[in-house]
């Protein structure tokens, strides 16, 4: 518990996490509000309300990466390891705090977007959260943000530099995953196993493909079930994170 408090103090005693959280909420809720206000021809589906969650995901991952890389940038990692020399426990405590916080931001973002859509959409008859799938579409955003944060923490601890870690994350998520789709023959097969593509299937995936509005989002059904998709994404995050712990433990601080 002590170390959780330590990481909480660290995170909230600088301004950048606050800005990141505000930005994540502003981007997702704000853009959803615009979409909802302009959704006129048909009843707005639940998926329409969480369509923007990826913007927030990138911001939250940047925040998580910063939580580690700024420690290296400003040398406080040495003070941290001086204070707790086993190294693993402060890194785990940091992960718990950052992952929980990211999950909460995800929930706030998803339910905020959904609530605002309910208020703004002309026809909100389809927005009601009636099925387990509806709940997954919205609450699942919290889980994806949490797992994404864990992945970013791992990358941050491995790379140690803010610019490097942030570019790796963004370039991979925004460029690499779409570009691999263009590789002839095997592109599609590779793409459907890419972590962020799979993660989006957890949010958007629906056993009933007709639930996806025209042109919105990737094909609904991937290789895995929605929960299997989340397990895949979270598994990759966990592996990268554990590798980073092993490296941090062995490497000179």
């Amino acid at each position: 518990m002590t170390l959780l408090a330590v990481e909480r103090i660290k995170l909230f005693s600088t301004r950048s996490p606050w800005w990141c959280m505000l930005l994540a909420l502003g981007l997702t809720v704000g853009i959803t509000a615009i979409i909802a206000a302009n959704w006129t021809d048909s009843p707005m589906p639940v998926l329409g309300a969480v369509f923007t969650h990826t913007f927030g995901l990138y911001v939250v991952m940047v925040m998580a990466a910063l939580a580690v890389t700024t420690e290296y940038r400003f040398g406080t990692i040495k003070s941290t390891f001086q204070a707790v020399p086993d190294r693993i426990s402060p890194m785990v405590a940091k992960a718990v705090v950052v992952v929980l916080l990211s999950g909460l931001v995800g929930l706030a973002s998803a339910f905020g977007s959904w609530g605002l859509s309910w208020v703004l959409a002309e026809d909100n008859s389809d927005l009601a959260l009636t099925t387990a799938n509806d709940w997954r579409h919205v609450a699942g955003v919290g889980l994806v943000y949490a797992a994404g944060a864990l992945l970013a923490l791992g990358v941050g601890a491995l790379v140690r530099q803010t610019a490097g870690a942030v570019s790796i994350i963004l370039v991979f998520a925004l460029v690499v995953e779409s570009v691999v789709g263009f590789i002839p023959n095997i592109g599609d097969d590779i793409q459907k196993w890419m972590p962020f593509t799979v993660a989006s299937k957890f949010i958007f995936g629906d056993p009933d493909p007709s639930a996806i509005p025209n042109g919105a989002g990737p094909p609904a059904i991937g290789e895995l079930s929605p929960w299997g998709s989340f397990g895949y994404f979270a598994g990759i995050a966990l592996v990268i994170y554990i590798v980073s712990l092993v490296v941090v433990k062995r490497r000179d601080a």
Partner: peptide, 27 residues
């Protein structure tokens, strides 16, 4: 053991007190 190796090992946007507070809390 108390050590001062590099005075610049402090997050520039954190207050002096917050810096000491998290250090204190950890032990």
């Amino acid at each position: 053991v108390g050590a001062l190796l590099d005075a610049k090992w402090v997050h520039p946007n954190r207050s002096a007190r917050a810096h000491l507070l998290w250090l204190a809390r950890s032990n």
